[in-house]
């Protein structure tokens, strides 16, 4: 990617509105238009950020949360990818498992929290389980959809040209399914953070959600707001990473050829 004046301007416009909102918020807080018990001023949030950064608490909690999010994502995502590929390629596998998976998919995974606490307590397993379960379905559904929507004419062409099953998979089917898999990936990243926030808020002894809940107990509203903002930033970071991957692997796609 090139950072020309034009591209900075184009990317910069997206940040204009958040900057204005923060400015208005600060003014409202300073003039006590918003009571400090309701909302902390941005400057207070920055102070809280600095305080927690110096104490090391912030870095530790972000680290714990990120590790949970990523390991849950890797576990759930790989299982989802494997099932998606298997069910997309094999009718037998699809007949065997798809109905079951579609039934389970319709249970909101957060509804399992009480059960999960009974099973795992408030240990790491509980969070991993919930994140993995939440991430599994968007990856599974979109991988399956991606494989099923690969142009059958291209598959026929590959067969006529004598491609083996492996070659056909890597040269035709997987690249054809990749755009859909990326949609699933981005969706899953969103669900990953959402699940983690809920799980950490309800049952945890460390992590960002726990930090926010502790702050609520002591009425530290600036820390609560800070936690929420960090979640937003982490979510954005994950999404940008997915988009970068998308750009790198989908160069052929007309939608990515404008840059």
């Amino acid at each position: 990617m090139k950072f020309t004046a034009q591209s900075i301007l184009r990317n910069g416009t997206g940040w204009l509105l958040p900057a204005l909102i923060i400015l208005a918020w600060e003014i409202a807080a300073r003039t006590e238009l918003i009571s400090p018990n309701v909302m902390a001023a941005p400057s207070a949030v920055v102070e809280a950020f600095w305080r927690l950064l110096l104490s090391g608490e912030l870095v530790r909690n972000i680290g714990v949360s990120t590790a949970r999010a990523l390991s849950g994502f890797v576990i759930g995502g790989s299982i989802g990818l494997i099932f998606g590929l298997a069910n997309g390629l094999s009718g037998l596998s699809r007949n065997l498992t798809d109905t079951t998976l579609q039934m389970v998919r319709n249970i909101p995974h957060l509804a399992l929290i009480p059960l999960v606490i009974l099973w795992f307590g408030i240990d790491e397993e509980a969070k991993l389980f919930l994140v993995a379960l939440g991430v599994f379905f968007p990856i599974y559904v979109n991988t399956l959809l991606g494989i099923q929507s690969v142009d059958p004419q291209l598959v026929e062409m590959g067969r006529v040209y004598g491609m083996s099953r492996t070659t056909l998979f890597f040269r035709v089917i997987l690249p054809g399914a990749l755009p859909a898999i990326f949609v699933g990936l981005r969706y899953a990243l969103g669900i990953m953070w959402l699940t983690l926030i809920v799980a950490e808020t309800i049952a945890a002894s460390s992590g960002l959600g726990y930090m926010a809940m502790q702050a609520r107990e002591f009425l530290l509203i600036d820390v609560v707001v800070l936690s929420i903002l960090i979640y937003a930033l982490l979510g954005k970071l994950a999404d940008s990473f997915a988009r970068l991957l998308e750009r790198l692997t989908l160069q052929w796609h007309p939608a990515f050829q404008t840059a």
């Binding site: 004419q153 291209l154 026929e156 062409m157 590959g158 006529v160 040209y161 004598g162 491609m163 070659t167 040269r171 035709v172 690249p175 054809g176 990749l178 989908l250 052929w252 796609h253």
Partner: peptide
Amino acid sequence: RIMFQEPRLLPWARIARNVEVGLT
């Protein structure tokens, strides 16, 4: 070899790579 009514090129492969499919 067969040539279809549609080109049926792999959109994710560059032109030379598409031609190489013929040498599978």
